[in-house]
Amino acid sequence: APPNLGLSYRALDCDDPESEQAALVAMDYLNKNLFRGYKHTLNQIDKVKVWPRRPMGEVFEMEIDTLETTCHALDPTPVANCSVRSMAEHAVEGDCDFHVLKQDGQFTVLFAKCDSSPDSAEDLRKVCPDCPLLAPVNNTKVVRAVEAALTAFNTQSNGSYFQLVEVSRAQLVYLTHTTYVEFAIAATDCVAKEVTDPAKCNLLAEKQYGFCKGSLTEKGPLNGNEKVAVTCTVFPIQPQPDNSPVATPPAKLPEAPVVLGPLLL
C-alpha cells in the first residue's frame, strides 16, 4: 500500500537536485545488490512523488529508467568508470521503482524493483543494420561457445580452476559463423592443471570472481577448424569487513531464469 494513505504527496520536478540526489542513492543501492548481469546507470527520472511519513521524514516514490553498462555486476570498478552499452551493441534498459526515505537529510532505500529488457530488434536495425542481436543464453551455439572458451581459459591457467557462474550475454554473427559470449566465473579450490573431475571442485570460501569475453568460430567452407578466443579479467578478492553495508553475493547465486538479458532485482 502506498505510504501514508490519506495524506497528499508533494510533487517534485524530476530534474530537481533533491530528485537527483534520491535517484543516485537508489542507483548505488541497485548496483550494490546486483550479482548477475551488468551494472546499470541512471538515464532518466520518470516520476517523483514525495509522501510525508509519520512521525518524521518523507518517502520519495520514484520511477527511474536505467541503462546497462559494460561492467559486469561482480566487477569492483566504480560504475562511474563504466561505459554505457551503446545502441549498436544492443543496449539493455532497466525500469525501476524505488521508495527512498529522506530523514535528517539522509536518503535510505526502502524498496526497489527493477526489470530489464533489451532494445527491440527493429530499433537496433535502424541504428546498425548489420549489428548482431542478443541471443538467448541457452542457445546451443552459445552454450558450446562458453564451454569452449572456459576450457581454453582453464587450460592456459597456472592457478585455480574457474567454474562458470553465469552467461551474461551472447551474440551470433552468422556471416562469419562466430558466436560471441560474455560470462562470469568463480575460482574453485582445484588447481586448473590437475583437474580430473570438475564436479569435485568447490568455490573458494573467499569468493574470487572473474569476467570473460570469448568467441567461437565454427569450421566453415573457408576455414578448416574451430577457433576459440577468450580473455578473462579476474577480480581481486573483495575483503568484506563484517559490518560491510555492501551486500555480498550469496554463496550460490540463484539460478537466473533463462531470458534475454538477466532480470534485475
Binding site: S8, A11, D13, T41, N43, Q44, V48, A91, S120
Partner: peptide, 27 residues
C-alpha cells in the same frame, strides 16, 4: 486543486517537469 486547508495551495498551476532529462539515450 483540492487540498487540505493546512496545505498551502500554489497560486497557479505549478508545472512539474517529469519525465526529467535523458542522460544518455532513449531506447
Amino acid at each position: 486543486n483540492v487540498a487540505q486547508p493546512s496545505v498551502a495551495v500554489a497560486a497557479g498551476p505549478v508545472v512539474h517537469l517529469c519525465p526529467g532529462r535523458i542522460r544518455h539515450f532513449k531506447i
